[in-house]
């Protein structure tokens, strides 16, 4: 009984999540896919490290942190360009995007340095 109610709840939850998410604007959805892809890449790298070993540790580190950093920055961009977010009303999306690009540039310059 408890189990079935839990699965029902879960189904209802998934349904409402999907319906709620469907209303998000397309540009945010694109960012979401980007974030998911970055996280997915990071997970693959961690899995690879678990199997093969972490020998060139700086390569592993820069690979994973590159993915995580990309994801985090994209999340930040998503927060800033989200129209529903009241905190960033006076921040134009162009400015947010420029900041995002700058931050990414710095991140990947550092990573290129760190790859060794």
């Amino acid at each position: 009984m408890a189990k079935s109610s839990a699965t029902k709840d879960a189904q209802a939850l998934l349904h409402s999540l999907r319906s709620a998410y469907a209303s998000t604007p397309t540009n945010l959805k694109i960012i979401d896919i980007y974030v998911l892809f970055a996280i997915f890449t990071a997970v693959i790298q961690v899995g690879y490290m678990a199997i093969v070993g972490s020998f060139p540790f700086n390569s592993f580190l820069s690979g994973v942190l590159s993915c995580v950093g990309t994801a985090v920055l994209a999340v930040c961009l998503r927060i800033q360009v989200n129209k529903e977010n009241k905190e960033f009303k006076d921040l134009p999306p162009e400015r947010a995007y420029a900041d995002f690009v700058l931050c990414n540039l710095v991140l990947h310059l550092v990573i290129m340095n760190f790859l060794g």
Binding site: N58, L61, L65, V68, G69, V72, I79, V106, L107, V110
Partner: peptide, 17 residues
């Protein structure tokens, strides 16, 4: 989130440099 999360990632990488 914006203040903290990028700082940790970027800061860690930069510190490792």
């Amino acid at each position: 989130y914006i203040a903290y999360a990028p700082l940790v990632i970027l800061g860690t990488l930069l510190a490792a440099l």
